[in-house]
Design a protein around this nucleic acid. Sequence first.
DNA 1: TCGCGCATTGCATGCGAAGTCAATATTGCC
DNA 2: GGCAATATTGACTTCGCATGCAATGCGCGA
Lengths: 343, 343
Amino acid sequence: MSGRGQKHVGPRRRATSYDVAELAGVSQSAVSRVFQRGASASKAMRARVLEAAEQLGYRPNAIARGLITQRSNMVAVVIGRQTNLFYPEVLVQLTEQFSQRDIRVLLFTLAQERDIDLVVEQMLQYRVDGILMAAMLNQSQVEVFRSANIPLVLFNRAFEAALTSSVRCDQAEGERWLVQSLHAAGHRRFAIISGPEDSSVSAERTQGALAQLHDLGVDEVTVLSGDYSYASGKAAVHTLLQNGARYDVVIAANDAMAIGCIDAARGKFGLSVPDELSVVGFDGIGPARFDAYNLTTVRQPIGRMTAAAAEMLVHRIEDPEMLPEHRVFSGEHVLGSSARIQR
Amino acid sequence: MSGRGQKHVGPRRRATSYDVAELAGVSQSAVSRVFQRGASASKAMRARVLEAAEQLGYRPNAIARGLITQRSNMVAVVIGRQTNLFYPEVLVQLTEQFSQRDIRVLLFTLAQERDIDLVVEQMLQYRVDGILMAAMLNQSQVEVFRSANIPLVLFNRAFEAALTSSVRCDQAEGERWLVQSLHAAGHRRFAIISGPEDSSVSAERTQGALAQLHDLGVDEVTVLSGDYSYASGKAAVHTLLQNGARYDVVIAANDAMAIGCIDAARGKFGLSVPDELSVVGFDGIGPARFDAYNLTTVRQPIGRMTAAAAEMLVHRIEDPEMLPEHRVFSGEHVLGSSARIQR
DNA sequence: TCGCGCATTGCATGCGAAGTCAATATTGCC
DNA sequence: GGCAATATTGACTTCGCATGCAATGCGCGA
């Protein structure tokens, strides 16, 4: 009894269509046809093949199929490494969307900005049928995909909007609503906590808020930047309030920072939110609904956005000549109770 | 000028090793060798090939390579659709772990329990080199993988522990610590909110807590069950306290529910946490650290667990004869301040 | 200068399924 | 019952790359 490891009972090699064909006494082509949708095969043949397949535990080899059909039936989904609680949910929903369409998801995460080139390389090597990009991308990379004829759909990236399909939430509109409502409720001293410098989403949000403030005649605004994390939200409030300065409202570029702001305002500075300080966020993540915060925010319609993104990508895969398309969704206005706001 | 869509400038077909070989004036084998690690090729050859490849935008076709080498260099990662904020983080970290080892991740999510069979089918068809399972799995499915010789590593599943490698957090030990500490601090009236019936993790946690309580002579314990969600935590507290019953502590099977408990206790019942009611959770998710909660909990060492899981799976892929291995990690004891606890 | 051994290189084959085309079986119709 | 039309079926090729094997080239020592 000195053998190491599990004794192999079954065949070491996985069954192929030839094995099935032999056992069923038919040709390999026949087996192949039985495992396709539009193929012609008689009832008798189908039955014999299926029985042989069952007996051998045969499954069509998707790799081999991909080689001959030039379709991997895989799409790449790329997300940045987010301090943000928003993306995991997007990822799960996207996966389900593709799954429903019988498409597999090859997942790539970007730990660091420079990883993007490696990831691009991998996506090309694996012959993904399409790419759903929820991370930074630059011109030359877009060009690589275009010249390789790989459909690309951007998620919440405005970048190179003219050439590439995209799905996004109207960040600016959301911020404009927030600012408008806050202003109407009497807020005048605004502070903004933006996200990371390299986040286009953050830039849009901040620009949207500033633009609306400008339109309302408010041009003196303090802008700090965070990194989308809870901790950076707290830190920003410390910076804002430490020297006795006071604000009516803090507009955080996302919910996680907004929550940090609330905790810092309440904890360290003993301020009541929203009575003494209003705080608003963006995204509509789960924790924003916790009673302790009940955040006033703009919720991105993830369900509709992911469905649209998957649908667009599939369409572009099926018809590569299709012109780029852009779908913009308005965020849902969540009144919450972390801000004194005009209904 | 009636053309629809983008005019195709580049070649419609992706370059193959033959194209490169022709341009470089060498054989296809040579091209193949240049794009491998252990292959022999002269400096001159390598240079010519690389230049031709560059010129044609050639990338080795990983699909074709997989067919011949019998290695897809892909692993499947399966996660359940979790109300739980814990898994997204696991997913991202696993992906990075595999990515570092030059392995791609094919992601599968289980929206519903019955999807598992579909997913199993897909994993087999795509010839993944290994499977990392962070979702429910039953005996017959394990058997399918075993007979197909596909390495399988379970993440936080004790199921069929003897036959399959696994990485998990010691749920029972964590609960025992919590109970022990709470008891030592004088708590006597315990309520437990378990997770979904079909969650083995929840079962282990609840059993662990009950066992320790029993050891301490506490046998009268109220046990309710939730679904891991914030809302179900709140609901459970309503049920517990509505008829005037009082408890010293609520032990929730995860952090999300614990946070729900805290909000319900403070909000609806005006109880001070931890002064009038202690609440503890499990997992150590991000929101548990929010100041409003600062949850007393047991944090799963995700970084070490994911690293161990990836490593184990890779080892098993490289040596299929390897015996099953089990790694159990102790959770980190987070004192927090949502419970009056013995340091 | 010749011979031997090793490093390169090319040729041919195979991985597993899909699809083309031609041969065969089946059916319907008069 | 006979023939055309249609449905099945099988032989063979193809997808793109890796690899065993044989052929070639090279360097170096005697």
